[in-house]
Design a protein around this nucleic acid. Sequence first.
DNA 1: GTGAAAGCGCTAACAA
DNA 2: TTGTTAGCGCTTTCAC
Lengths: 335, 335
Amino acid sequence: MDMRGIAKIAGVSSATVSRVINGSNLVRPETAERVRRVLDETRFVPNGSATTLKYGRSSSYGLIIPDMTNPFFSEFIRSFEGILVARRQDMFMALTDHRASRMKDTIHRMLVRQVDGVALLASEIETEPIETLIRNRVPLVTMDRRLAGQGLSDISINYSTGLNEAIEHLKSLRHQKIGYIGGSSGLTISDHRIQAFVKAMERAGLKADPKFLLVGNYRISGGEAAMAELLTRKDRPTALIAANDLTAIGALRALHRAGLSAPQDYSIIGFDDIELCDVLDPPLTTIRLPRHELAEKFATALESSAKEPHAPGKIYNIKTSLVLRTSTGPAPKRK
Amino acid sequence: MDMRGIAKIAGVSSATVSRVINGSNLVRPETAERVRRVLDETRFVPNGSATTLKYGRSSSYGLIIPDMTNPFFSEFIRSFEGILVARRQDMFMALTDHRASRMKDTIHRMLVRQVDGVALLASEIETEPIETLIRNRVPLVTMDRRLAGQGLSDISINYSTGLNEAIEHLKSLRHQKIGYIGGSSGLTISDHRIQAFVKAMERAGLKADPKFLLVGNYRISGGEAAMAELLTRKDRPTALIAANDLTAIGALRALHRAGLSAPQDYSIIGFDDIELCDVLDPPLTTIRLPRHELAEKFATALESSAKEPHAPGKIYNIKTSLVLRTSTGPAPKRK
DNA sequence: GTGAAAGCGCTAACAA
DNA sequence: TTGTTAGCGCTTTCAC
């Protein structure tokens, strides 16, 4: 059943049916009512691809995520999807599994689908797919690339607010040697995080000892390996900040396996504030990156670029803040 | 740029361009080559909505998930997405947040998008949205409803295999009183699980004491509350099987809070085998529901229904099995 | 206030 | 082997 069918039953033209469906006010109320009744009775479902073809817009957005396994992303998706539904928009989702090579194909598929914009949360980004989007005039919003341009916006993360709080907190607990377990090397987002850490340390008048800057992989395994390696050393920090919560959980595990515990032996601070933090033992002190706000900024940025394709993109900022739980405590008195 | 534009540059008609893109072999190789060069040079992206409109199929599927927070679903999505990508199909994702009321709108949006089928993993299912899909001839695949029909298939879970193993395992550790913490009440999937538990107990010659059949909510909170309540009683089981891993994790937490631990004081078995199980303390013995296989069956079922809309749907079966870790041990000797 | 008709970009039947 | 053309279902001028 199409609009012509509805039109025939209701004794009007398909133009009128279209007007009724789209809430145009140049239809006589009685006519509209008659059409609406037929629409209901037949449970009419319009063909979206015809609308998209005609209209040039699909009212759907593409979402590209590196990794479903990280709860940070699943929690983001939940918020993002909720916001889109409220705006009557749909979501195409694609996963890159951290492989930049997957991106090209993914972007192509989204272009074919005529998405009105793309939210890109993966950090493994090459310039080519981005140029492809720009060339096709499809707005793109990225996370923490700190670059904007025509049809290109970014949600930049202000790590300093949370990190300053975190380091002040540790300092007040008499920690002097504070280490950092970073994310995968080679990603700009990892660079941003570690730079922010070093800067926050300096600001607090502490030394960010290069020996205490370890590398992880944003997963539990990376945090566990880094902490385990650290425990084999003689000279060690008394507190650690991790690049994300999974990394911190890994560090906690390594501690546990070594018969140690937080916060008695080490203070551990994560980053993200995934729901799991609250359920851990000990509950994880962490730097919160507000997911719902992040999702809202993505949606806002996408929509405004989609509406005004010629307006330049913007850089949006999002603050982080410390969430105190019990994985941090006074520095142990050691030799 | 559309196919007509490409055609003009290459000096052919748009039909030929279409043939080249779709790999038709009735194009002279030289012509095809010339067209392909233009396609590359202009980085042509076809308009998928036109194809969908013409063709009546969108090569995309809808996926409806109740809850991103449960890692079981995120792990499923990862597999499912991978399978679809390999088949050059896309995925529309929608979340119901466990509310049946959201389903109607969700299904409607998917119909508008002309999806070729819907994978429905939510358990809160009313008949109306299902009928809507059938009426519109869109194949539907559900999980553990154990119902099939025209355009309707189901992936049924064989709980018995895993549960029998689990209960034999507990029995061999001298557990006699085995309890069960179920999922949300009122869902058929919860009924299937508890019935399978009772049956497996009987099969092992043990009594499934109704007092030891508790209710949870498939989340950590439900498992924790149920276990906490259990601990206030005098007469208690020595082992517990949970309706999913999150429930088991909750039970573990409650134990821990009460100063008890698994497997010394209680043996705990989960269900699903999410990745987290391996990282818990203690690592959780659980009944594995193989996610990748589940995703493959969904994809297979969808594709075969989409290809042959008139063939009747099928019921696919999927087995479960016990994964031994260390949250289970010998029954403690008590009074 | 309503209808007729063109056209969005693609594909497939038919013609050449 | 290639081109012409109709039409998928919708929206939107432009006439009436």
